[in-house]
Amino acid sequence: MMLFTEVRGLPVLPGTGGDPLGTVTSLAVDAASGTVSHVRLRGGRFRRETVLAWEAVRAIGPGAVRVGDAAAPDPLPPRHDLLGHRVLTEAGTAHGTVLDAAFDPATGRILAVFTTRGEVTADRLLGLGDHALVVRGD
């Protein structure tokens, strides 16, 4: 298990070594499937933000994110960062703000979301948009 906040700031390295591709800025989430979908990183000559599909990730450790050598950037999906997002139930009841999320680094599966009002299990996630993370009510 790893936390999103542990991954932010890690260098992204090609699998066989070499210069870093950039630094992780965030992890994009597909809330409906309960998985990490992309790794957002900033780097390169112009410090532009790019994204890599989760499938390009080979390993995540405490010191770096390793990706396959043929990892090519994906088109930038809409930016819906999980961290800092409001949490609302499907009925519109506020459930705090996202502080962190735990995930399985081998599969990208979300294990839990930690909010200012407690833990939300991954099976309660419904969707993530510009306004909020929507979860099933208690």
Rank of each mutant, 00 (worst) to 15 (best):
M1D: 05
M1C: 11
M2Q: 13
L3M: 14
F4A: 14
F4L: 15
T5F: 03
E6Q: 14
E6N: 11
E6F: 01
V7F: 03
P11A: 10
V12A: 04
V12L: 06
L13H: 10
L13T: 05
P14Q: 11
G15A: 11
G17N: 09
G17V: 02
G17R: 05
D19T: 13
D19H: 04
D19P: 06
P20R: 13
P20K: 02
P20D: 11
L21A: 03
L21I: 07
G22A: 02
G22C: 00
T23M: 06
V24E: 05
T25H: 00
A28E: 03
A28Y: 00
V29D: 00
D30N: 13
D30S: 09
A31T: 01
A31Y: 01
A31R: 04
A32C: 00
T35E: 06
T35M: 04
S37Q: 08
H38L: 03
R40P: 00
L41F: 15
L41M: 13
R42C: 05
R42G: 02
G43D: 05
F46D: 10
R47K: 11
R48W: 00
T50F: 02
V51Q: 07
V51M: 03
V51E: 07
A53D: 15
W54M: 10
W54V: 11
E55I: 01
R58V: 15
R58W: 01
A59N: 07
I60V: 12
I60Q: 01
G61F: 03
P62F: 01
P62K: 08
G63W: 04
G63S: 14
A64P: 00
V65S: 01
V67D: 02
V67C: 03
V67R: 03
G68S: 13
D69Q: 08
A70G: 08
A70C: 00
A71K: 00
A72E: 07
A72L: 08
A72W: 00
R79W: 07
H80T: 06
D81W: 01
D81P: 01
D81Q: 04
G84Q: 10
H85M: 11
R86Y: 09
R86C: 07
R86K: 14
V87W: 03
V87G: 05
L88R: 15
T89W: 03
E90A: 15
E90F: 04
G92Y: 04
T93P: 06
T93M: 12
T93K: 13
H95S: 13
H95A: 15
T97K: 11
V98E: 04
V98R: 06
L99P: 01
L99G: 06
D100Y: 01
A101L: 07
F103V: 13
F103D: 06
D104Q: 12
D104K: 14
P105I: 09
A106C: 02
A106N: 10
A106H: 14
G108T: 12
I110F: 09
V113H: 14
F114E: 15
T115Q: 09
T115A: 11
T116R: 12
T121K: 14
T121F: 10
A122G: 10
A122E: 12
R124N: 07
L125N: 10
L126I: 14
L126F: 05
L126C: 14
G127I: 07
L128E: 07
L128C: 06
D130M: 12
H131Q: 13
A132E: 08
L133N: 04
L133S: 12
L133D: 08
V135T: 14
V135W: 06
R136S: 14
R136F: 02
R136M: 10
G137D: 15
G137W: 06
G137M: 08
D138K: 10
D138H: 15
D138S: 12
